[in-house]
Structures are given as structure tokens and as C-alpha cells.
Design a protein around this nucleic acid. Structure first.
Lengths: 195, 195
DNA sequence: CCCAACATGTAAGGGGTTACATGATTTT
DNA sequence: AAAATCATGTAACCCCTTACATGTTGGG
């Protein structure tokens, strides 16, 4: 149940509406955790029922309203408990590798298309993650800035450092995948030249 | 729906029972795709109903029976269609990185435990993947050997090469994760020495 | 004879995807 | 006035996890 913890983590920066969270999830932050709004709104309601967040109705324009959620003490505690516990790793299910392992069944063109798509996919991720890493390292990221303003002064350095370090892993992985895809293209040539 | 394609891929080596597949999934091969037997047996039944596999009842001992599934032409075609189509990449949901990004909230001990667990987890994967890679490269792997005996002679080299190359990616990733976890341990020291 | 391995199921519940649905507000 | 964005839901369906459940066979 990690959607819940991703939401708690985001809301620990500042109170937000479901819409705000949705935007962040398919924007910058979302390159670490993604979820559609159809999952977010009900989950926030459940979290409110469980006392982890406080929903406050806020006016919007003249007639309309929106619901802004703030972390409660219990919510902060739940986040800390989750962070203190060992992470459980999901089972391996690697579609790209499953695909690659059986490429002898397809022609050279399809094999090349496979690796070009793999490279393009991870280049997209690399750009997003790099941009995110930079906006955090330079403290220009809006959510981070808000977090730093409300958070304790003595944790300021670690708050930035851990987020940068997390994105470093993602950036490193993207680079590795891109290099691997390039080697894959070479291997297609080699295997199809031989025959 | 990739469990189905993982099953088709495995069965393309040789006919197998649900039990065989289950063993492979939590043994060697399973380090690329994992699923419990409660998911495998019903899926094989559905695939049979869809004409992708042929279930044959085989005697086992004196009284008991087992059901061995073989790929049909339609099943092989479905596998080839899936391989020819571009892979669709699942949304990013990285629990370990989500965890890491908020480590400023926990103490030095919990942070160290987090990275030690990360390192241990990926060392386990590294060992399994390395062993698997070697057993394929040396053609001592049982499933691969069977596949090579039944498959066309001219694809022999590619059959081995693509599987080795797929495991190369997994091995490379595990190494990267281990190196990253070690850097994480250093960063814990650095951040907690400063305060 | 007992135990490990072989062999195959069912079922409840959780989490995620996709599609359907609606309305207010702000910008052009 | 139209279009984009803000804002929030519901519901069907699929996939996966966990737990319950049962019986046979082969080796020590």
C-alpha cells in the first residue's frame, strides 16, 4: 500500500488538494510515483477517514469549492513508521527483458525498433529526472522550497541531499538503459550479418 | 497482460505442466518474471480455452495424473505478435527511491539499515542473475538445452545471445544498485557527522 | 511409515487501469 | 463565446497477493 505513503510524503511538504497531487504525479514528482486521479481522490478520502489527513473545504472562485488535505500528527507518524521499517521489494517483472530474451523470433527490423523504443523511453525519463534533480539541487523546485520553509532548519541539508541522491539513482539507471539499448542495436547488426 | 506472454515464452521451449512452470518461476527463470501458482494454473486454463495451448493429460505414478501444456500454432503466433509489437512500459513506482527521498525524517541507524537492506537485496539478485547468465552462455541450462534441441539450427546463436544479453542488463542494474547503496552509506555518515 | 516433493486447485480482497461523467473557472 | 484548465467523482474490469484446501508419489 505505497500510494498512501507517496501521498503522505507529498503532503508533508504542504497541504494540497487532490487535483494538486494529481498534477504533481503526472508532472515532475510523478517520475518517482505515478497514479491516476481516479485512484487519488478515493484514497485521500480513505486517509481522512483513517485520521491520517485533515480535509478542509476551501472556496474557489465565487460558487465552487475544493478540498485541501493537510497531514495530521497521526499521518506524520504513519509516514515515519513506514520510513523506519524495511522496504519490501516487489517481485521482478521486467517486460523489456522478457521481450529481449526472445528476439531470435523476430526479424532484424523489429529487433531494431525494440531497442530504439527502449532508448527513446529511457531518454525521456533521463531528461525528466535530470531536470528534477537540478531543480532540487538548486532549490528552485516549488514543492521543495515550501518544504524547506516549513521544515526544521537543522534538517535542511539532509532534506535536499536525500532527494538529490534518490534522483541520482534514477538518472544512473536511465543512462545504463540507454547504453544497453545501443549495445542491443549493435548486437542486432552482428547477429544478422552472420546469417 | 504479460503473464500470458511469459508463459507462452516458457512453453515455446517445451511442453510443461503448471507445476513445472511454477518451479521455473520461483527458481532461475523466475528472476525475470515471477508469479505464484494460484495465478499460473487458472491462466493456463484460460489460455487453453483461448486455443493458445493444448492441455494433455499425462499419467503420473499409478493413480495420479498431471496436465501438460504445449504451445499451439496460435500460441506461437500470439507470442510472435507480442514480440513484434512495441513493448509498453509500466508507470514508474519506485518504493526504494520514494523511501530514500525522505530519509531526513529518520535517524542514522534506520538510514543505514535501509541501504544495507538495499545492498543485500541486489546482491541476492546479482548472484541469481549471474548464475543464470553463465548457465545460458555455457548452454548448460536445462530449459535452454531443450529449446536448442527443438528449435531451428540457424537461430541457435541468436537464441543464446539474446538471453545472455537480457541477463546482462539485469546484472548491470544489480551492480549499479549495489554501488549506489554503498554511496548511500557514505552519505549517511557525512550528513550525520556534520550535525 | 513418514516426510518432502509433486500436483492442482478456489476464493477473498487489494490495487490499478480505463472509461464514463459532470460542472465551475479562467483565459483567449 | 469557446476552449483550456481546474476540480472531483463513480464503476467495471483486470491482475495480483494471500490464504485456504486437498490429495498423490517417491525416497529414506
Amino acid at each position: 500500500m505505497s500510494l498512501r505513503h507517496a501521498l503522505l510524503a507529498l503532503l508533508s511538504a504542504q497541504p494540497m488538494t487532490g487535483y494538486d497531487v494529481t498534477k504533481l504525479f503526472d508532472g515532475s514528482v510523478g517520475q518517482m510515483w505515478q497514479a491516476p486521479h481516479s485512484q487519488i481522490y478515493p484514497e485521500l478520502r480513505r486517509m481522512e477517514a483513517d485520521g491520517l489527513v485533515d480535509g478542509e473545504v476551501v472556496p474557489r472562485g465565487t460558487r465552487a469549492q475544493k478540498r485541501r488535505y493537510a497531514l495530521t500528527k497521526a499521518g506524520a507518524q504513519e509516514l515515519d513508521d513506514w520510513l523506519a521499517a524495511p522496504a519490501d521489494y516487489p517481485p521482478v517483472r521486467d517486460v523489456a527483458r522478457l521481450h529481449t530474451a526472445y528476439l531470435e523470433r523476430v526479424g532484424a527490423d523489429a529487433a531494431r525498433a525494440h531497442f530504439r523504443a527502449h532508448q527513446a523511453h529511457h531518454e525521456r525519463l533521463l531528461h525528466m529526472w535530470t531536470a528534477m534533480r537540478e531543480s532540487i539541487a538548486s532549490e528552485t523546485n516549488a514543492v521543495l522550497a515550501e518544504r524547506l520553509r516549513h521544515g526544521p532548519e537543522d534538517r535542511r541539508r539532509a532534506t535536499v541531499a536525500w532527494k538529490v541522491f534518490a534522483y541520482d539513482a534514477l538518472v544512473g539507471r536511465a543512462r545504463l538503459e540507454i547504453a544497453w539499448a545501443k549495445k542491443g542495436l549493435d548486437l542486432v547488426d552482428e547477429l544478422h550479418a552472420a546469417s
